[in-house]
C-alpha cells in the first residue's frame, strides 16, 4: 500500500502536497481533478499493466478502493 500511495502521489502531481492514507477520500483531496485522474489512469497502465477508465475512478471513493483495482 505504501508503494501504491507513493506512485499515486507522483501520478497526481499535486501543486501543494497533502498527506494521503488508504482511507483518504479522493473527493476530499483539494486538487483531485481531471488532470489527477489522467495521471492515475496512466499510472495503472504503465505501473500495473491495467486498463482503467473514468468510470472506475468515479466508482472509487477512497485510495483503498483504487488500490483494489490493481489486484482486480
Amino acid at each position: 500500500m505504501e508503494e501504491f500511495i507513493e506512485k499515486f502521489q507522483e501520478a497526481v502531481d499535486f501543486q501543494d502536497p497533502v498527506e494521503v492514507t488508504e482511507n483518504t477520500v479522493l473527493l476530499d483531496l483539494p486538487e483531485w481533478d481531471s488532470l489527477a485522474a489522467l495521471g492515475v489512469i496512466v499510472m495503472f497502465d504503465i505501473e500495473y499493466g491495467k486498463t482503467i477508465t473514468g468510470d472506475h475512478l468515479l466508482k472509487s471513493k477512497t485510495i483503498k478502493d483504487l488500490f483494489e483495482l490493481t489486484v482486480a
Binding site: 481531471s34 485522474a37 473514468g54
Partner: peptide, 12 residues
C-alpha cells in the same frame, strides 16, 4: 474534449 476518454483511446 473528454480528457479521460481521449487518453484511454490513444494509449490503448
Amino acid at each position: 474534449l473528454d480528457g479521460t476518454a481521449v487518453l484511454s483511446f490513444s494509449t490503448q
